[in-house]
């Protein structure tokens, strides 16, 4: 790697000071599992890296209050995967976290980094969208909270302003009788990026929501209120047609992992799998 200078502020104020001095050329690093790969492969060559891993205000934490669960930006993907609150209230996020990279990557990568990189294939994003996650951003100007879909703007693009940091992810606790599941297609079980990834939600009222990743510049959510998708009496063919229709909004690309046609075709298949699993979970659910 080309030489660079390294800064490791311990709190937000000293971080702001450093960023103020360095200007826009500095790169933030949390786990480094994506940033260091980009440096090693020559895609970026920063002169300065600001390691934000030790900043106490954005530290790793998963805390519950009456209305939501707050996840600190520095929370490791492996900590999300193995947390009992996440497992209880946001099971599809647990599943999604468990499919990020490999065990070695999950032990280093953070949820904040996963979001700020804004990869269209980010595994946690479809689940976070389904759970209506909000993002708290902080800067010298104060803080603001925005919905995740307003934070992710395109491949590698977010609503982060220069000098702004992601502090926490806010997950509203479920209030409806609902169930979710996560499905992912990849060439290799460990490490590989998703060809497509999907999180499906079934609500007892009959409403269905499906979040789709790796099939457009940003992950998106489609909804169906008709109830036919989880009606046991509806013919399979009708359900399949409905799913294909819902997935028309996708705009997948062809790359080394798959062609756009294959991605498009697999979306309905994966959505169906995810919905079947979510439906059976809903049926066997005793509480809320």
């Amino acid at each position: 790697m080309k030489p660079f200078n390294y800064f490791a502020p311990q709190d937000l104020d000293s971080c702001y000071e450093i960023v103020d001095k360095l200007g826009k050329s500095a790169y933030f690093m949390a786990g480094g599992t994506d940033l260091l790969v980009r440096i090693k492969t020559g895609r970026i060559s920063p002169n300065e890296i600001v390691d934000i891993k030790n900043i106490k205000e954005i530290r790793s934490r998963i805390e519950r209050n009456e209305e939501w669960i707050e996840v600190g930006a520095l929370t490791l993907i492996s900590e999300i995967q193995h947390n009992s609150l996440i497992e209880k209230y946001f099971p599809a996020l647990k599943e999604a976290a468990g499919s990020v990279g490999s065990i070695q990557i999950r032990n280093r990568a953070t949820i904040g980094g996963n979001l700020c990189n804004a990869s269209p294939a980010a595994d946690t994003v479809p689940a976070l969208l389904i759970y209506n996650a909000k993002i708290k951003l902080v800067s010298t100007g104060g803080s603001r909270v925005i919905p995740l879909d307003q934070f992710l703007l395109g491949p590698g693009k977010t609503a982060l302003q220069p000098g702004e940091l992601l502090q926490t992810i806010i997950l509203p606790l479920p209030t409806l009788r609902q169930a979710e599941s996560y499905e992912r297609l990849s060439r290799r079980r460990g490490v590989d990026l998703a060809i497509v990834n999907i999180c499906a939600q079934v609500i007892a009222s009959g409403k269905v929501r499906v979040a789709v990743g790796a099939a457009g510049p940003v992950a998106f959510v489609v909804e169906d209120q008709s109830g036919i998708l989880i009606n046991p009496d509806t013919e399979e063919e009708v359900k399949n047609e409905k799913l294909v229709e819902l997935m028309q909004i996708a705009s997948p690309i062809s790359d080394i992992r798959a062609s756009k046609e294959y991605r498009q075709a697999m979306l309905a298949v994966l959505a169906k799998r995810a919905l079947q699993r979510a439906s059976s979970q809903l049926n066997s659910k005793k509480e809320l």
């Binding site: 390294y6 490791a8 480094g32 599992t33 260091l36 790969v37 090693k40 492969t41 390691d51 891993k53 492996s78 990279g101 490999s102 065990i103 070695q104 990557i105 032990n107 280093r108 490490v191």
Partner: peptide, 27 residues
């Protein structure tokens, strides 16, 4: 591989398995 895909550089840091090719020494 040097980019966190093969695991040949796996070590334990504070008891956690990590790819040492994707960690800076200064960290």
């Amino acid at each position: 591989c040097g980019v966190g895909e093969c695991g040949a550089c796996t070590v334990l840091i504070d008891g956690k398995a990590v790819n040492s090719c994707l960690v800076l020494a200064v960290e």
